[in-house]
């Protein structure tokens, strides 16, 4: 039985679609209700929905054998897992954004609002720029508008939200997409099942 952690939401549903088409379906998952775990003994899979940022923890600690997670989460938390395949879905980018026309004052410490402090720290440290990280959990766009921060580091899909709030992307940090990850130890003992899933998903 392969235990698969899916991220709650649109992306998780899309990822499930890929797996279903690859022969790892579980019709029960479409039923409405509050159930958290769905199993199909015929295809040998057990799915569960978890918060997207928790998928890597479930896999790293072996509660799930494999999982679907955004590259942003992998870069931020650096879990010790195998990253077996780029699913090519959930494409977006991690970018630095600032108020339109913003000019960096290098005489001052740069205040950066973000949900991804490690990614932001690594990026600015590679530029030798001193920064003050302001860790927020949502509505990052508000921070520069209310002068809580100078700039922000966040995921940008279309850039519409930024534009509507007088902000613009200044620089891309990294391209993001969803990845199929596996627990390193479990992989050793379920290698055939996991590789069958990887190959199935890759060929879709």
């Amino acid at each position: 039985m392969l235990n698969i952690a899916l991220p709650k939401g649109r992306l998780g549903e899309k990822a499930y679609g890929l797996m279903e088409r690859a022969g790892f379906g579980c019709p029960e998952i479409h039923e409405e209700g509050r159930k958290l775990i769905f199993e199909n003994s015929e295809t040998g899979v057990r799915y569960f929905w978890v918060k997207p940022s928790d998928v890597a923890i479930y896999v790293e600690r072996g509660a799930a054998d494999v999982g679907i997670v955004g590259k942003d989460i992998l870069l931020e938390y650096e879990p010790d897992v195998y990253e077996l395949c780029d699913l090519g879905i959930g494409k977006c980018r991690m970018a630095v954004a600032a108020p339109v026309g913003y000019k960096d004052n290098t005489a001052q410490t740069l205040r950066v609002a973000t949900k991804f402090p490690n990614i932001a720290r690594a990026f600015f440290s590679s530029r030798s720029r001193e920064i003050d990280i302001i860790k927020l959990n949502g509505s990052i766009e508000l921070a520069p508008i209310l002068n809580l921060s100078d700039i922000l580091v966040d995921i940008v899909e279309t850039g519409t939200t930024l534009k509507e709030n007088g902000l613009e992307p200044v620089e891309d940090i990294v391209q993001i997409s969803s990845r199929l990850i596996a627990n390193k130890a479990i992989y050793k003992f379920k290698i055939d099942e996991i590789e069958r899933l990887v190959q199935g998903v890759k060929s879709r």
Partner: peptide
């Protein structure tokens, strides 16, 4: 070949052991 250790210190054979049911090395 995914068993890797730091190139500065390790030069030859490297290995990792796993036990079925334990989710880490």
């Amino acid at each position: 070949l995914s068993v890797v250790n730091d190139m500065i210190y390790y030069n030859g054979v490297v290995f990792s052991g796993y036990v079925n049911g334990v989710p880490f090395r």
